[in-house]
Amino acid sequence: MATESGSSSRVQKTTSSDGAVGSARTTRTDTGASSSGAVTLVSMDGDGFVVEASAIEVSKLLKAMVDGPTENAAKEIPLTNMRSNVVAKVVEFCQHHQTDPMTDIPKPVQFGKTVGDHVQEWYSTFVKALKDEMLFEMLLAANYLDLSPLLELCAATVGLRAMNKTPEEIQREFNIKEPFSPEVERTLRQENKWSTEPPIGS
């Protein structure tokens, strides 16, 4: 995981100090009225990612920052709560989303289906490449950035992993080590008995 996300971020990353433009920068000129040109997203580690302003409009937070009252400062957006590889992935997602918007995922997802059954192949491979920790960080980042397609994609992936499993299996799947005290657990089991029985009609 480290190598993969590392490599993808290396491709796109530029350092904010030298200002050299990586492959992330597209040469197309922006057509948006309010925002124009490139914006640099600065990650927690201090790396800058140059991205076209129109590409990040899918994120409501970033769009607000680009369009917002603090426009003079908007050319460089600090994302001090995200690591570089996350920002790189987000940028990658935004750029692809601009050319090929993601299809909707039905809610709830049907058991037995995969994310790939609902979205384009690019997105399914994209999300498949994200391993545990990365996936959750992406989920948090997408939520923070108000980037709904990415949020849906990640949430559906996480949801599918938790689907149709017993509590113990879920704990194992997500490596949750937070045992309840026995009596609390008994109460919980009792109260949630309905959920552990097979669904009606099956």
């Binding site: 995922i105 809610k107 709830p108 997802v109 058991f111 989920l139 939520n143 949020l151 849906e152 949430a155 559906a156 996480v158 949801g159 599918l160 938790a162 689907m163 149709n164 499993k165 017993t166 509590p167 879920i170 704990q171 997500f174 949750i176 937070e178 657990e185 919980l188 089991r189 949630n192 309905w194 959920s195 552990t196 669904p199």
Partner: peptide
């Protein structure tokens, strides 16, 4: 957000984790 993709039973089981 994750919950919205899940069935009710899953939600109940998830709450026990």
């Amino acid at each position: 957000q994750v919950h919205t993709f899940l069935d009710a039973g899953d939600l109940g089981r998830l709450s026990q984790t």
